[in-house]
């Protein structure tokens, strides 16, 4: 195969898989709890800053993982407790509340790290000879990790006992409670899982992008498009949404240019909202 076409093909896979990874946390919280967490991008930002702190302190790159889990987990727990819990089943109120939270987190990042850009040394530099073309090693690793994490979570959700409990909680919270499942604890755990996943995605992308207080805005926007297109709350929807949004953007950007790629993505999102408001993979 022509190396250019092949590289562009890998770009598409890269675009789709990383987009799925970045959206995962938002999808978990929105799909399972019905809360649209506008501060999702800021949790991604926290992960990225954790990676920055780890490098600044001279720790290995992966030291960012426990730091992120601690910060995002703790923050997610507190936020769910004091901000989200009183507002379940009030979608607009949670929207406003998490929007406020995103402002707060952004300002906090400004206060702690300053307004400027930070950058990370890529932990695995260089390119790899892959299927007859050169591709950045770190991006190949990211593709592998993203696909593993997303599929792993999907399998866990559909097979594990906790996954079944979560599905039970979503489907019929009162009955779940009647059967001894603590809906509150499970919702809290779900929210924390979502924020932690966002943070972990932030670590993954940190070496590739400028780390700055406003970086979260990019991610929440694209993740939101994925949910709009894919449909809310279904795992298949997450994959198809990421495939459509990431794929269309990458493919059109590859064959035409980025403006058309972005334009097509917006048109597609609008069309889906208009024609299939419940997403291309409508729920049963």
């Amino acid at each position: 195969m022509d190396p250019l076409v092949l590289t562009q093909a890998i770009n598409v896979v890269y675009g789709v898989s990383t987009l799925a990874a970045v959206t995962l946390g938002l999808a978990v919280i929105f799909g399972l709890l019905g809360v649209l967490n506008i501060a999702h991008g800021e949790f991604v930002m926290i992960g990225a800053y954790a990676a920055f702190v780890a490098q600044w302190a001279g720790w290995p790159f992966l030291a960012a993982v426990p730091v992120t889990l601690l910060v995002c987990g703790l923050l997610g727990y507190v936020v769910e407790r004091i901000l989200i819990r009183p507002l379940y089943r009030r979608p607009f109120d949670t929207l406003v509340a998490t929007w406020g939270l995103s402002l707060l987190l952004r300002e906090a990042a400004k206060a702690i790290f300053g307004r400027g850009y930070h950058s990370l040394t890529i932990p695995v530099p260089g390119t790899l000879h892959f299927l007859g073309t050169e591709y950045p090693t770190y991006r190949l690793i990211l593709i592998a990790i993203s696909l593993t994490v997303v599929t792993g979570l999907v399998v866990w959700y559909s097979r594990s006992r906790t996954g079944t409990w979560i599905r039970a909680m979503i489907g019929n919270p009162e009955l779940a409670q009647a059967q001894g499942i603590s809906v509150r604890k499970l919702a809290s755990a779900t929210f924390v899982t979502g924020t932690c996943l966002a943070g972990l995605a932030g670590i993954m992308v940190a070496p590739l992008v400028p780390i700055e207080p406003y970086m979260g805005l990019d991610y929440v926007l694209r993740a939101f498009f994925v949910l709009v297109v894919g449909g809310l709350g279904s795992v298949l929807g997450l994959f198809s949404g990421a495939a459509v949004i990431g794929g269309v953007n990458s493919v059109i950007s590859a064959v035409a240019n980025a403006t058309y790629g972005y334009f097509t993505m917006l048109v597609l999102a609008i069309l889906v909202m208009w024609l299939r408001p419940r997403g291309i993979v409508a729920q049963r």
């Binding site: 950007s253 590859a254 240019n257």
Partner: peptide
Amino acid sequence: EEYVPFGAPNKFEEVVTR
């Protein structure tokens, strides 16, 4: 000569490959 949308969350893998 190529442009990307101003103010959009751009990524550059495709441009760089070109």
